[in-house]
Design a protein around this nucleic acid. Structure first.
Lengths: 206, 206
DNA sequence: AACGCATGCAAGTATTTACATGCATGAAAA
DNA sequence: TTTTCATGCATGTAAATACTTGCATGCGTT
């Protein structure tokens, strides 16, 4: 009932884990497609290939599935920080790396992100988690640009708006490609390089 | 049953229209907040201040309400075209005007847009309507920039990515301010001017 | 006064949905 | 072998929900 997994799993068939994850996978997929309410426990069980009651043997109730899913959406900060520190003093390659990392992070969290976007109105905790994501991405890039400016790599500029523009472009691409599935005419590598170029010239260097 | 409004409305009390719109308003608000399924007919009727059955006297079923709402989301093309043609040969003022117009168009369609975003997966017609919006905005700006380039107002450049970046920034701002309600640190006029500046320098003029 | 018509109200129905209970089974652990 | 435990299966339940029907009422038009 409370947290019944002991050391059985290591030796045992491991089915308990497997089943649990099959349920989570099914729920993730369905909730992203149909929303929380649209993903009925019946549909989830069918897609997971388990009996409906099995769901309630693993999760107290339906909401717990949602919560568990949302916990997957960990912070992006570490990934972005790594991207920033990876490259040295070349502004353009930093930008490209940052954009790519942000985009990939979004794609990796795709389903859960979409669920959050849809369900954020009803679940305030989700709401906070979600709203901080783009803000963080903006801020971190903005600070990095400021820092590079102070290091003499960039002239003065409105780095907040610049960062916002840059980050937005990738977020928008993500939405277009993975939610409202438009067949985009620009491929990602081109878009990454081009937008880095434009921003770079826009904020004044080279 | 079919389409019972005759010429009564002009002379009559006008309640029929009023009630119908109260229902639509309530539905729009609730569906934007809770999604299609979350907006129950009971809640809609309560918010509209009418009896639940009255809803079904005005609409064949719940889905008809949704469809009627989505028809509100008319094309943005005319508005954008007007913005483009309004200003003469100044690239920066064109950009600012375009961005502002796009943003305002989004805000005006706010609720319906959010409903579409959420419900697009389940209703294919909505899907098409919605997916074409940002595409159109990208394309139109891209074409305008190309045209201005040919008129000698701009050097060669990747106008597709440039347009995408610019439009994305406004869409992202819209999402941040009106959906996931972040308290943004950049105000819109500043953001409009700054992003126009950056883009302008980014694609090479001035 | 007489009629039409939009609405309110009471009650009901069929379906869906989250979740519960009890029992049978089969495989692994002891 | 015996026990344990996750799971399947059948059945049930209480609530919610979209939608219906019949009747009463009050207002505006004729």
């Amino acid at each position: 009932m409370d947290n019944g997994e002991h050391e059985k799993n290591q030796t045992g068939k491991g089915d308990e884990q497997e089943t649990r994850e099959r349920i989570l996978n099914a729920a993730r997929q369905l909730m992203a497609q149909k929303g929380y309410k649209g993903a009925t426990t019946r549909k989830i069980s069918e897609l997971a290939g388990v009996n409906e009651v099995t769901i309630f043997r693993h999760f107290k109730n339906k909401e717990r599935i949602l919560i568990e899913l949302l916990e997957e959406m960990t912070e992006i900060r570490p990934a972005l920080e790594k991207a920033i520190h990876a490259c040295g003093h070349d502004v353009k390659s930093m930008l490209m790396h940052y954009g790519e990392t942000y985009y990939n992070a979004l794609v990796e969290r795709k389903e859960v992100l979409i669920i959050s976007l849809i369900e954020s109105q009803n679940h305030p905790e989700v709401f906070n988690l979600l709203s901080r994501m783009p803000q963080i991405a903006d801020e971190m890039l903005s600070e990095k640009l400021q820092e590079m400016h102070e290091a003499g790599l960039l002239p003065e500029g409105d780095f907040r708006t610049a960062a916002h523009m840059f980050v937005s472009a990738f977020f928008h691409s993500f939405l277009a490609r993975h939610w409202v599935k438009v067949d985009c005419d620009i491929d990602m590598p081109t878009m990454t390089e081009s937008s880095a170029d434009i921003l770079l010239r826009g904020i004044g260097s080279q």
